[in-house]
Design a protein around this nucleic acid. Structure first.
Lengths: 129, 129
DNA sequence: GCGTAGTGCTACGATAAATGTAGCAAAGGA
DNA sequence: TCCTTTGCTACATTTATCGTAGCACTACGC
């Protein structure tokens, strides 16, 4: 990882072109970014509540994402504590919302053999680490 | 909370809940997933053309994402060669498109330091809470 | 004062994922 | 035949994320 603070070439990972859409796609394409926006859609959450909402993701990444999203102007630390969406973040969230309906339809319409059945029966494959 | 653990859900990395939206957010939250959808928005591309379009990302991940997106039913291998969006994938892409306009607006009037150039930590010191 | 509990946030080793380079077999075209 | 392009993979290195623990600070109650 870049030394986290010194490198000026800290362009967002894969987006070396600098085109805004690429920067945005790359930012949102990191783990928990979309999820954080999603979980904050209704109301602000404290860092710990957010962590709980996000499947108990490790605080390390969550803080990293939170910092990035704050720098991007999508999320802010509220007065009374807790993280909330900025007006800009709320606009962005509006574009993520339709995914909910899409996801329902997607799962409902059995698009592909893998990703769902795969002869695995039910339950969760052990997410080994 | 209803636990819908039917056969339709397979864990995709962090999404242990199995709720479709989580599965989708997690799938799209992987590196190059959104970018791939974006690059295929107009026309099918060969794997190598896609790689070029994606900032020369390593073929390893690209193939992995491509496989996942194919299994999800968003992308398919065309007859004459090359990857293209399925009708379902096109629907999904429709939701990613508005991000373009948003991204322009975002970077145009960015309230916070842009994510490229300027690491964090120096320009924004104390963060009183 | 003191203790307890809640915040946001960080350190650090371990593990999973992505990168970069190289290469493969198959399907054409000249 | 040689040459090119296709989709795809191996492998070692680097990067990102995980999981656990803990810090400093603040706001309470006692």
């Amino acid at each position: 990882m870049a030394k986290q603070a010194d490198s000026k070439t800290r362009s967002v990972r894969g987006s070396r072109t600098g085109r805004p859409i690429m920067v945005l796609l790359d930012l949102l394409g990191r783990r928990w970014s979309l999820r954080i926006l999603w979980e904050l859609r209704d109301e602000p959450l404290t860092s710990r509540a957010l962590r709980t909402a996000c499947d108990d993701a490790s605080p390390t990444v969550l803080q990293a994402r939170l910092t990035e999203l704050r720098e991007a102007g999508f999320v802010e630390l509220e007065e009374g504590g807790g993280y909330g969406l900025t007006p800009l973040g709320r606009d962005l969230c509006e574009m993520v919302m339709p995914l909910h309906r899409f996801a329902e339809r997607w799962q409902g319409s059995s698009p592909s053999p893998r990703l769902q059945g795969e002869g695995r029966g039910k339950g969760e494959p052990p997410r080994r680490r």
